[in-house]
């Protein structure tokens, strides 16, 4: 029963959502359980945060590598969480100040750092050896050139419009990129639909974990 009841819970929750599209009378029930879903998701985030704290506490307790930094992580967590829970998250609060001067600069620099690694990886991996890799390289180059002002500044007036980076970039995005992404989306959505069916019918049970 430790596995069967959760499977029934999953089935009922999923089927109500699907049936709502065919039976509008079910909308109030569906909206209510979708709100419940948000509550459960919030608790899932708590589980993640608690797990992070537990792992770092163990790191400090057993004096593992980099344990002093783990103290910093715990202090950072409680500072931010308590600032938000006690003082609120509106503009002008301590939480807002911490977000503006800690979270935002660090997250944007982390992502900006990837520019270097992506460029370095591309330099090593991109070689126009085959038609496939040449197409990838050319598309990436044209899109990057078309995105920046210099891409169109150098184009002289007599240059054919269909060879300008701006025009080529738009065509690549509208035709090549749309076609590829569309095929991927259709394939992926069919995969999601079949996996959802497997979950609802109890064929896919990996989310229940080990007995």
């Amino acid at each position: 029963m430790r596995r069967e009841i959760p499977m029934i819970v999953a089935f009922v929750a999923g089927v109500i959502i699907i049936l709502e599209f065919f039976v509008p009378a079910l909308t109030p029930v569906s909206s209510r359980i979708q709100n419940w879903y948000l509550v459960v998701v919030a608790f899932a985030i708590l589980v993640g945060a608690f797990n992070l704290l537990r792992l770092n506490y163990m790191k400090v307790r057993h004096r593992r590598t980099d344990w002093p930094f783990a103290i910093l992580l715990i202090v950072g967590f409680f500072t931010m969480a308590l600032a938000g829970l006690i003082g609120g998250i509106d503009e002008g609060t301590a939480f807002d100040w911490l977000f503006n001067y800690f979270v935002y600069p660090m997250s944007s620099t982390m992502f900006a750092l990837l520019a270097f690694f992506v460029a370095s990886a591309a330099y090593r991996a991109f070689r126009a050896r085959t038609v496939d890799s040449t197409l990838l390289l050319a598309a990436a180059f044209i899109v990057m050139l078309g995105q920046v002002p210099i891409g169109s500044i150098w184009v002289p007036s007599w240059w054919p419009f269909f060879l300008s980076p701006d025009w080529l970039k738009d065509r690549i995005m509208d035709i090549g990129n749309t076609a590829g992404q569309r095929a991927i989306l259709i394939g992926a959505s069919l995969g999601v639909v079949s996996t959802s069916l497997r979950i609802l019918l109890g064929i896919e049970r990996s989310y229940l974990g080990e007995e």
Partner: peptide, 10 residues
Amino acid sequence: YLFVGISAGF
């Protein structure tokens, strides 16, 4: 480490 802790708290 500070980023991870503060982001989780956020």
